[in-house]
Amino acid sequence: MWTYEKRLQYPVNITQCNPKLAQVIISQFGGPDGELAASQRYLSQRYTMSNPKVAGLLTDIGTEEMAHMEIVCAIVYQLTKDLTPQQIMESGFQNYYVDHTLGLYPQSAGGVPWTAAYIQSKGDPITDLVEDMAAEQKARTTYDNILRLVHDHEVCEPIKFLREREIVHFQRFGEALRMIQDDLDSKNFYAFNPSFKADLDCIKK
């Protein structure tokens, strides 16, 4: 169950439209390392996470990612609000506009629609947590790339906030991986999958 709060986790108040920048930032909505992918990755993985504390962490981070998706969408929405046809043509926004007008659609900066192929839910705690740590770093790099292109303080501040959250999440997932490993044989973390205990008959233990 989720409930909605009428507030953004970090405020977005953009007064200067910039459709060119919106087309780049939208990648963190529906792109390969975006917030929609992040939320679906963690919220899908949690069911078979063997350690209940780590399942709780996946729930809480997955929930925060939905709030980040809302922040990214608010940035894109405000950067493209009330555009004129002339502004649309001059900024190269026409290819997006023709399919979506000014609606928010989950796609990458390159125009590729969001796909579940961006994420994995493998049913193995070590595999999933290593994927999650990589995902946080990929998102952090994407925010670094965006920050090199942004000069508007009103856009910069929420993007900097989102970038910092990737670093905190990476740290928490690292701790979660250690918690999983503490429950396993330190000489062979891979002797079995704690979420699926059927023997691997052909591998010598």
Partner: peptide
Amino acid sequence: SFVLDELRLFLDT
């Protein structure tokens, strides 16, 4: 709220 968001994740681990 943000302080609580941050503490929630920290306390999870």
